[in-house]
Nucleic acid binder design. Structure first.
Lengths: 337, 337
DNA sequence: AGAAGAAATGCAATCGGTTTCATTTTAAAG
DNA sequence: CTTTAAAATGAAACCGATTGCATTTCTTCT
């Protein structure tokens, strides 16, 4: 069998508990003993069993990552790899590993979280996006399990979260179009079951209101977070309206929106201007290059991991949320009228 | 404290071992007892502790994913999220979770693997790319630990791997350019410490040879797998040569190559034709849309996970490797001369 | 030299399960 | 109504660590 702490103990002529303390570099063990034990570990090629250690110490040094919906779907949108990139940087720095649950739908997602939490497999959890109907958030809060949500939850009481100022960001995008002389501005977002969609819709409405432009329900559509989703939503709008500009809350969707506009015989940006969200790498290379709101996806990852780990280390952290700034990246998908 | 198997046992008036058997749905337990135990579990809100279970059973239902170099870097190239997407589909189907180690360099990578393997944290490992100088592969093989490599290892003896026919793929790309009348064809790849770069270089040479075109060392460059890397490599070539076409073994690098060509006053594709590799989403939208070799990245993920899990389930699998087919996607970055 | 306190180490319980083997219960057979 | 085998359950060891508390050893002081 494998070499265990006991084998090392025997070889070094000490008790297993002593070996354990040597591993932890406990100051109550004398220099000499430590050296003897280290030598024994070296000679036997000992390596601690992380599972056993976790069981005894109740610490896993692992962060759980929960993706929205199916893991498969999530990986299709560049947003998630990018936020994971941020998370991984911090996780690495702080010596945490990442456990990805692979769920297929909302029910499995719940199951996955329960498995992580009750199964004691992780020290904390990052939810990669917050849904309005999320049962996970209240559940985790009630369990008093450390977690951080990317995206402000509907009910943020007692939960730690990291997000952009989505209302402000959406106002920024809409105002940009208004300043360029647009008044018939459509708004396309992902499902309204995501808080982020709701917030951005609010920002859009606010911008209109502040500029005395009446809100028209017919100019608003939702669909899934994909190129096709954007295409379908835009098609529906173009069936009934003639917007001169559109705010799309996701760059991937924006590509679909552009495609729909072109299929309907419009030119972008000459006939219809477009502002996207997220500033994914593709956006700079799109045709036309997409004007978009850069939400600092990478930082969203960084901050959420930092917040979670801070919470893990000291029971109480001064802030319960972090707002990551956004900025508008001007490219070629908008035109003044 | 938490509800354990013992609490359930007490409540159901059975021994802990019986409860354990009920969880495993062992047929040697009577229907009535099972029902009594289930009821007790339900009433107490029992959930098995995965860590304890792993410790005893030596099974984790987790797959380890090892990214090349820094995890951060890996997430920047769309290749990796896409292969992970494939892996996650299979993992989900087979009820495995994914453990991502977060390493920063080659040394830490080794450390991470040792931690996973010796720490007994995973049942098997997928290496997301194989380096020529990889110590990991021989080490894992010697440990007799189940693992699969994406990318054919230099020494494939006794290791399971999934890859494209990279030599063939590279021949395909090069021949395509040759058929379009090009003879001064440059070749840009990532570092030659990756087997994939080596193989593709071989394919390139082979294609030249078969068409009686002399190989010129000056037309070949390597750099890191990034846009900048491609830019630098192309710049170096353009300092000394005047190729009419170039094969670039990574789409992200190809964008840099295009940028370099344009900076040097060439037009793409009119002056210089480009063929990329990987067919990442961005490629279709690039300017010009990139002609590229589609290596079925998603399938690479699917197949590697399937191969690993097959190996986990039955000690011996009939094949030790899988070749995923490639195809050339013709777009607008090449022109005949 | 003996007592007291500090330093170093060991003992044994514990974490929460699984699994082998023994024991009890039940059913079938003689 | 035994005998015997099969079925169901329990007892206890084990997986590989950690940790509270007890014990031994070493200093230091009187």
């Amino acid at each position: 069998m494998n070499v265990t702490i006991k084998d090392v103990a025997k070889r070094a002529n000490v008790a297993p508990s002593t070996v354990s303390r040597v591993i932890a570099d406990n100051p109550r063990i004398s220099k000499e003993t430590k050296e003897r034990v280290w030598k024994a570990m070296e000679e036997l090629g000992y390596y601690p069993n992380a599972i056993a250690r976790s069981l005894a110490s109740k610490v896993t040094n692992t962060l759980g990552l929960i993706m929205p919906r199916s893991t498969e779907e999530a990986f299709s949108n560049p947003f998630f790899p990018e936020v994971m990139r941020g998370i991984s940087v911090v996780a690495h720095r702080e010596k945490y590993d990442l456990l990805l649950s692979t769920s297929g739908n909302q029910e499995e997602e719940k199951e996955a979280v329960i498995n992580m939490v009750k199964g004691k497999r992780v020290d904390g959890i990052i939810l990669l996006s917050s849904r309005t109907t999320d049962e996970l958030i209240p559940w985790l809060r009630d369990e008093k399990f450390p977690f951080v949500v990317i995206g402000k939850p509907l009910d943020a009481k007692g939960v730690y979260w990291v997000d952009n100022d989505n209302i402000g960001a959406s106002k920024l995008a809409t105002n940009y179009l208004i300043k360029h002389g647009h008044r018939e501005i459509a708004f396309i977002s992902g499902s309204l079951e995501y808080v982020v969609s709701l917030d951005r819709l609010d920002g859009y409405k606010l911008a209109l209101e502040e500029n005395g432009i009446p809100f028209k329900r017919e100019l608003v559509e939702q669909d899934e977070f994909s190129e096709d989703g954007g295409y379908r939503a835009m098609m529906r709008i173009l069936e009934r309206e003639k917007p001169t500009a559109v705010v799309v809350t996701d760059d991937v969707m924006a590509f679909g929106v552009i495609r729909a506009a072109i299929d309907k015989g419009y030119r972008v940006p000459e006939d219809i201007s477009i502002v996207g969200f997220n500033n994914i790498p593709l956006s700079a290379f799109a045709n036309p290059p997409l004007t978009t709101i850069d939400i600092s996806t990478f930082d969203l990852g960084i901050k959420s991991a930092e917040l979670l780990i801070a919470r893990l280390k000291q029971k109480d952290v001064d802030t319960d949320h972090i707002i990551v700034p956004v900025k508008l990246v001007e490219r070629k998908s908008c035109v003044a009228r």
